[in-house]
Computed example of a mutant assay.
Amino acid sequence: MTAAASSYAALPADLRTDRSTIVSLWVSNLGHPERRQDKFDWFYLRNPAGTPHVLLAHSPAEQGVPIGVIGLGTRHMRLAGQPIHAGLLADFGVVAEHRTLYPAMLLQTSLRDQFLPQLGLIFGFPNSKSEPVVKRLGYAVAGPMVRYVRVLRSANYLPARLPHVVRHTLGRTADWWRHTLRRTQYAHDFSGVFAQWMDQPDVRFDALWRAQGGQALLIGVRDCRYLAWRFEQKPWKKFRFLTMNSRTNGLIAYAATEVIGPVMHIRDLLCHPGHPDSLGLLLDTLFRDAHSDGRTSVSFELLGPAPMQQSLLRLGMVARGQRNVMFTAAGPNADAIRLTPWYITSADEDY
């Protein structure tokens, strides 16, 4: 049995004194106990955008034990070139015996009412169970975050009932024809550019970020400081950057990558708007290197403008599923936020 709705209260947490309570709620509700302490230090204590906020749901009321938690990080963004601050929903969970609609709604409502007026935008990546809750609170779908996949070794995706030799022969033949056909149709000129793998970003990434200028996008800041925190300084993950460099114009594109088993995941990607071929140059190189490294496929999740989606398909990637990015907006920028194309990758998530 759960307590009556009136006996619940959502109160601000103190990150110093409530640390053990917050981490305990994460462990019991969100899993991955081995990395929860690291997540607290990385996201809540070392976040370059500022200290996130945490609310705890108590039952019974203010003096009761914490039974739920929700976090809100700050994300520095650009709306058509103008700086704005947004809130990023994070680490939402309620203990099993209180997992009814009211405690979840209380946490979400309290967080929205307290922080939306000062931020103007809150967004997040709710799972299928949480999405109905945030929709009831007035959140809308910003768009689908589509997972694009480029198969590098077709044999791994052919029916297992085929003999091993047949599968690998057919797979190699399909890979060769697909690669040759795409190269014939969409050849790229690599003269004057070179690729480089890096473990951490440098000052060239700041120049690439500044080059984004006043593009008609809603996009999170991707300067060197943010990328170093998001990727290099994340303690339980290992990332590498593939960079594409012009001998005369510096860094023109990068992809932040993570390898999990046979798949290379692109966690973030940014191209110079003045170099329209940079995406093709970058992905051609990445596909080649991933194949040479024994990977079976490359995956990339993106909510982005239509021209970039079309470019990914033209470069041989295929849409394989999607999930919604949800948001609520208020204030003078609300209409522009709704109408402007979003650019969101895994780099904008809290995990």
Rank of each mutant, 00 (worst) to 15 (best):
A61P: 01
L15R: 08
P117C: 04
P144H: 10
S278W: 01
T21H: 13
E131P: 00
W26L: 04
T169Y: 08
R182E: 05
L302C: 01
E131I: 10
P66Q: 14
Y186C: 15
H168Y: 09
S297Y: 04
L15C: 05
R314F: 11
L282C: 02
Q196M: 07
G192D: 10
R338T: 08
G81L: 12
V54S: 00
P201E: 04
H168P: 01
Y102L: 03
G171P: 00
S6D: 11
T328Y: 05
G31Y: 02
Q118L: 14
L312V: 01
G220K: 02
L158M: 08
Y139L: 09
W342E: 09
S292M: 14
A10E: 08
Q63G: 13
Q37H: 11
P60T: 09
H188V: 15
Q82E: 11
H58E: 06
L339K: 10
R167T: 11
A253M: 09
H85N: 12
V259M: 11
R16V: 13
A104W: 05
P163R: 12
V203L: 12
H272T: 03
P52R: 05
L88S: 04
G220E: 06
L88V: 03
A207M: 04
Q200L: 09
G294D: 12
R338G: 12
V94R: 05
R267I: 06
A13N: 07
H53C: 14
R112C: 08
Q82V: 14
C224Q: 15
W177A: 13
K135T: 05
G31K: 01
T243C: 05
R225I: 12
T173N: 11
E349N: 09
A142E: 01
V165S: 13
H272G: 04
R19Y: 02
G304Q: 03
G192S: 12
G124F: 02
T243R: 00
N249G: 08
H188T: 15
L101Y: 09
L25W: 03
R314P: 00
N29H: 10
Y343L: 05
I67Y: 07
L72Y: 00
R230M: 10
P163S: 13
D113I: 14
L79M: 08
S59K: 02
R136V: 03
G87L: 14
V165Y: 11
V263N: 10
L107V: 07
Y102V: 01
R46A: 10
H265V: 08
A255Y: 07
L283M: 07
P276W: 07
P103L: 05
D202V: 09
Q233A: 14
R75N: 10
L279W: 01
D91E: 15
G124K: 03
P163M: 11
